[in-house]
Amino acid sequence: MANSKRKLLLEAASAIIMEQGIRRLTLEEVAARAGVSKGGLLYHFASKDELIKGLNEETIREFRELLQQALEETGSYTKSYLLATVRQLEGLGHYNASSSMLAAIATNMDLIQLWEDDYQRFRSEMTKRGFRLRLA
């Protein structure tokens, strides 16, 4: 039950950012959108910063799940990465990477480290599979 409320709150936060913009992301707005009391929200996320961190962590976790599913389908890591990206953009996941990153950039640049760490995992996996990635 607690996990479903947490998920509901994160989905509400993502939707608010995408529909109304980052300035409308308040704990009160998220709680109302999720149909949870503000106290219920604070049980899961003690602050807006924690909410945004949770949103970023869950977006990355969900992408990794989409990537694993695609890898089982295609057998190709590169194709799977692209397929998982498209699926997330198409809304097949619960969270929107754009909303998560926007929230991190707008409120706490330190959270971008989560994305940098995930990108390094991607680069490492590609290197293990024989690909060389170069930044132009």
Rank of each mutant, 00 (worst) to 15 (best):
residue 103 A to F: 00
residue 33 R to Q: 15
residue 31 A to P: 05
residue 89 L to V: 10
residue 3 N to Y: 11
residue 82 L to K: 10
residue 32 A to Q: 13
residue 89 L to Y: 07
residue 30 V to S: 05
residue 114 L to Y: 06
residue 23 R to S: 15
residue 120 Q to R: 15
residue 13 A to T: 07
residue 82 L to M: 13
residue 112 I to R: 05
residue 99 S to T: 10
residue 109 M to D: 12
residue 27 L to I: 10
residue 77 Y to L: 14
residue 10 L to K: 04
residue 82 L to I: 15
residue 13 A to N: 07
residue 80 S to P: 11
residue 129 R to E: 10
residue 31 A to F: 04
residue 53 K to C: 04
residue 80 S to N: 09
residue 96 N to L: 04
residue 126 M to Q: 11
residue 112 I to G: 03
residue 5 K to W: 00
residue 62 E to W: 01
residue 12 A to V: 07
residue 17 I to P: 00
residue 21 G to S: 12
residue 10 L to E: 01
residue 95 Y to H: 07
residue 31 A to T: 08
residue 55 L to A: 03
residue 47 S to W: 11
residue 109 M to W: 08
residue 37 S to E: 03
residue 86 V to H: 06
residue 34 A to P: 09
residue 33 R to N: 10
residue 7 K to Q: 15
residue 17 I to N: 02
residue 49 D to L: 05
residue 103 A to C: 12
residue 85 T to Q: 09
residue 23 R to T: 14
residue 39 G to C: 05
residue 94 H to L: 11
residue 73 E to G: 02
residue 83 L to Q: 13
residue 114 L to P: 00
residue 55 L to P: 00
residue 108 N to M: 08
residue 96 N to F: 01
residue 29 E to V: 09
residue 108 N to F: 01
residue 112 I to F: 12
residue 108 N to E: 13
residue 97 A to L: 12
residue 13 A to F: 01
residue 45 F to H: 03
residue 37 S to H: 08
residue 123 R to N: 09
residue 74 T to D: 14
residue 120 Q to F: 09
residue 65 E to T: 10
residue 74 T to I: 02
residue 111 L to N: 14
residue 125 E to I: 03
residue 65 E to Y: 09
residue 83 L to T: 11
residue 63 F to C: 05
residue 48 K to C: 04
residue 93 G to V: 04
residue 6 R to V: 03
residue 91 G to H: 10
residue 33 R to M: 12
residue 58 E to T: 02
residue 56 N to H: 04
residue 74 T to P: 02
residue 96 N to K: 10
residue 27 L to K: 11
residue 105 I to E: 14
residue 103 A to S: 15
residue 77 Y to T: 05
residue 62 E to P: 02
residue 91 G to F: 08
residue 59 T to I: 04
residue 80 S to E: 04
residue 44 H to Y: 06
residue 38 K to G: 10
residue 44 H to Q: 11
residue 111 L to V: 04
residue 35 G to P: 07
residue 125 E to N: 09
residue 103 A to T: 09
residue 85 T to V: 07
residue 109 M to T: 14
residue 64 R to F: 04
residue 46 A to G: 13
residue 76 S to V: 09
residue 40 G to F: 09
residue 101 M to Y: 11
residue 18 M to N: 12
residue 71 L to Y: 13
residue 53 K to L: 11
residue 129 R to T: 04
residue 116 E to P: 00
residue 126 M to H: 08
residue 126 M to P: 01
residue 99 S to A: 15
residue 11 E to Y: 02
residue 61 R to T: 09
residue 14 S to R: 02
residue 99 S to W: 00
residue 37 S to Y: 02
residue 14 S to L: 02
residue 16 I to D: 01
residue 45 F to L: 04
residue 64 R to C: 03
residue 28 E to Y: 05
residue 114 L to W: 00
